[in-house]
Design a protein around this nucleic acid. Structure first.
Lengths: 179, 179
DNA sequence: CCGCGTAACTACCCTCGTGTGACTTCCTCG
DNA sequence: CGAGGAAGTCACACGAGGGTAGTTACGCGG
C-alpha cells in the first residue's frame, strides 16, 4: 500500500530523512506540536530545517528517538522544560547503547544508567523524585512505528546502529546546502 | 504588629492544625499556590476549610505530607494533574508505613512500593516512564521543617489526626526513623 | 460596648508556557 | 506554469499560578 511514490510511507526518501507529517505519525504527536517544538528550539530537525514556507523539515533517526523520549515524558506528565533537560542528557551520551540504557532524571542531574544496578544505586542514594525512562521501550516502539508505516519498502529503518559505542556512524547526509 | 496571636512558630494550637501561611513556610510553596490547590480541589484542608474571608484553613499533618509530595513532584517537573494522581494513590494506602515506602507512578497506574525489590520488579516489567518518590525524604524534610519553625516549643511536631475520618488507625508515625 | 488593626481568605485581572485551528504564503514537483 | 503540500503567522484556549485590593473574623483598647 502506498507504494507508488517514495513519500507514501514512513521511510526516508533515500538518505534524506523524515518529513514533518511523517514524524508526527511516527511519534504520535500533532503537527502543530512538532512545529511548536521546532520553532521554540526544543528540537530542530538535524538533517534540514525549514528555510521558508514552502520548504520541508527533515528529521534524522536520532531526532526521532529524542522526539519519542520527549513524548514519553510528556505522557508521563512531565513538563517540556524537564523533557528538554532529558534530551540534553541524551545528546551528551551519543555513543551509548541506548536500547539497554535507562534515562534517569533527578532534580538537577540527569544520567544514563546502563544497568539496573546503576538505577538501584541511584535510587538508594537520592532524596528527590526520580524520573526513569527505559529507552528499550522507546527504541522498540519507534522501530515498530517505522516498520508499520513503511516497512514493506525493503528499506532498513536505521536500526543497525547499536555498535555505535565509540564508532563513527557518520552516515548522515549533510549534503543539502542552505540557501 | 501587635503580638496578638499565640502561634509564633509552626506548632499547631492544641489540636487545631496548621494554618495556611504556616503550611506555606513548612512546605516551601507560595500562599497563592496553596490557595490555588485548595480552590481547585487538589488538596483541601482536612481539619477545617475556610468558610469565608475571615476564617482560617487548618491542615492536618497528613495534609502536610501530601502537600510535600506534591511539591516534590512539581519540583521534578511533573504536572499538577499527575501529582493529583499520586496523592490519590497516597490516600488509598492510609495504613502504609510511609517513611519506608516509595511512591511509584507510571502511566495509568500508581502504587506504593514498600521495598526496593518491588521497585526493581516494577522497573523490569514496565515500558513507560516511572516517577519514583522516596517518601522517607519527604517525611524527613517535613519533620525537620516543623521542628525548625516551632522547635522551641518543645512540642510534638505532629499530633494525632482528628477523628474526622472516623477510622482509628494508630500507626506509629513518628518520623524520626527512616528506612 | 464598639470601633480599630491585623491576619487570613477571596475575587479579579494578568502573565507565561504550551499548545491548537484557521488561514496565508510559498517552495517543489510535474 | 499550475497544483499541492508543507511551513509560517495570528488569534485564541487552558492550566498554573502571581499581584493586589477587598472582605471578613478575631482580639484589644478606649
Amino acid at each position: 500500500m502506498a507504494g507508488t511514490h517514495n513519500e507514501g510511507g514512513a521511510a526516508p526518501v533515500g538518505e534524506a530523512g523524515y518529513g514533518g507529517p511523517q514524524v508526527c505519525k511516527l511519534i504520535g504527536i500533532s503537527y502543530r506540536q512538532l512545529d511548536y517544538w521546532a520553532r521554540t528550539g526544543l528540537l530542530r530537525p538535524s538533517v534540514a530545517d525549514a528555510r521558508g514556507s514552502g520548504t520541508k523539515r527533515l528529521y534524522s533517526y536520532r531526532d526521532l528517538l529524542e522526539l519519542k523520549v520527549i513524548k514519553q515524558l510528556l505522557d508521563a506528565g512531565i513538563s517540556l522544560q524537564s523533557a528538554r533537560r532529558a534530551v540534553d542528557c541524551l545528546r551528551q551520551d551519543l555513543g551509548a547503547d541506548l536500547p539497554s540504557a535507562k534515562l534517569v532524571l533527578t532534580e538537577g542531574r540527569s544520567v544514563l544508567a546502563q544497568t539496573n544496578g546503576e538505577v538501584v544505586d541511584l535510587l538508594a542514594g537520592g532524596q528527590g523524585v526520580f524520573n526513569i525512562v527505559p529507552l528499550s521501550g522507546v527504541v522498540d516502539e519507534l522501530d515498530a512505528a517505522i516498520v508499520e508505516l513503511g516497512g514493506s519498502r525493503g528499506q532498513e529503518p536505521a536500526l543497525g546502529w547499536p555498535a555505535a559505542a565509540g564508532a563513527g556512524r557518520e552516515r548522515s547526509r549533510e549534503g543539502s546546502s542552505r540557501g
